[in-house]
Amino acid sequence: MIVDKSRCELLHEIMAVDFKLYDLQLYLDTHPFDEDALCMYQNLVNDADELTEEYEEKYGPLTPKSAAGNCEWKWIKNPWPWERG
C-alpha cells in the first residue's frame, strides 16, 4: 500500500503528541500536584484529539473504536504498523 506523504506527516505528528502525553503521564504519576505539568498535559490532550479527528476523517481509524462504519469494518483496511509504504 502506498502511503502518501501528508498521511505520514500527520501520523508522525500524532505519534509525537501521544508520546509526549505518555511521558508526561509517567511524570505526573510521581508529581501529581505539578500545575505546569497538569496544564501542559491538558493542552496536549486537546492537540491529540484535534489531530486524531483530522486523521480519522481523512485516512481511516486509528483505534478499533472508530473502525465501525455503517456497512464495513474499516480497521483491516489500514496498513499494519510494521508495513512500510
Binding site: 511521558d23 509517567l26 510521581t30
Partner: peptide, 13 residues
C-alpha cells in the same frame, strides 16, 4: 533512563 528516573521517584515516595 527516563523510566529509571521515574521508578527512583516512586521508590523515594
Amino acid at each position: 533512563v527516563v523510566h529509571f528516573q521515574r521508578f527512583g521517584e516512586a521508590l523515594r515516595t
